[in-house]
Simulated scan of single mutants.
Amino acid sequence: MIFEERKWAELAENMVRTQIAARGISNGRILDALAKVPRHVFVPEELRFMAYDDCPLPIGYGQTISQPYMVARMTELLDPKAGEKVLEIGTGSGYQAAVLAYLGAKVFSIERIEPLAKRAQDNLRKLGLSASVIVGDGNKGLPEEAPFDAVIVTAASTEVAQAWKEQLKDDGRILLPLRLHSGVERLLLLIRSEGKEEEQWYDYCRFVPLLPGVEKTM
């Protein structure tokens, strides 16, 4: 089997070395997380031979698991600390939530497509990683668990939703791919400090769009 313990660990180490560290990600905690969280668990079985390749992959329902470098880059920009309460918008396969949980964050992740949410929760439990996956509309956030130290959005949004701001702690931060216009998206880090908000702009990127509502199709 290609994903027996030793083999996948070798593939993950190579992924970290050639795709992530080689592009300037130097945070040791993040490099360790990407090496230790088995990405193939979050990829459909028929595509697992590509799990450690330098590309996003389809996971069904028109959704994707992000390119490994982009997961590392967004994690670096969010800079989650152990014990912080993090809200993720767009669980997908659960891989980003798994990386955050491995780093010690208390993760609440919202997924609008019910079958994906169930699969992601199963994957996280299988690995013994503690993260709560909730079926819901990510645009509304999760007011019952607010406030959050950080919010990370893993689908392209046309705006920073007011709900995310309202559910953020003082001195918190929001990271999202913001759609500037058709075909152009860029990572935006919004940092709140002493009642003021600062915008920091980073990489251009491509994500599936953030959609409203809940889809329960099985």
Rank of each mutant, 00 (worst) to 15 (best):
M70E: 10
M218F: 14
Y204L: 15
A97K: 01
M70D: 10
S26Q: 15
L31R: 07
A12F: 01
L127W: 09
L124M: 07
A131D: 05
E88S: 11
R206E: 13
T154Q: 00
L100N: 00
L116C: 03
W164M: 06
E199L: 12
G90T: 07
K85N: 06
I174S: 02
D122R: 15
V214T: 13
P143N: 04
I30Y: 08
V214H: 01
F207K: 00
K36T: 15
A72K: 00
P143E: 04
I25N: 10
A150M: 03
K7L: 13
L190R: 14
G104C: 08
G83C: 08
N123V: 01
V153C: 09
V135L: 09
E111V: 06
R179C: 12
P44D: 09
A33P: 06
S66D: 06
R179E: 15
R186M: 10
P58E: 11
N139V: 00
L189D: 06
E5V: 12
P68K: 08
P38R: 05
Q96A: 11
K85R: 15
E159I: 02
I65G: 03
A35S: 15
W8Q: 07
W164D: 07
A163L: 01
L34Y: 03
E45V: 14
E76I: 01
M15G: 10
V16M: 11
F148V: 04
R119S: 04
G128C: 07
M15D: 11
T154C: 02
V107L: 02
A82G: 12
L189H: 00
Y102Q: 07
A161P: 01
Y95E: 09
G104M: 03
F3T: 07
P38N: 02
M70P: 03
L188Q: 12
D122V: 12
H40C: 10
T91N: 05
P212D: 05
I110N: 05
N123S: 14
V208P: 09
L116E: 11
H181G: 06
A21F: 11
T91L: 10
G92R: 10
D171R: 14
F207D: 05
Q162Y: 04
A97W: 06
I110Y: 00
G128I: 09
V41F: 01
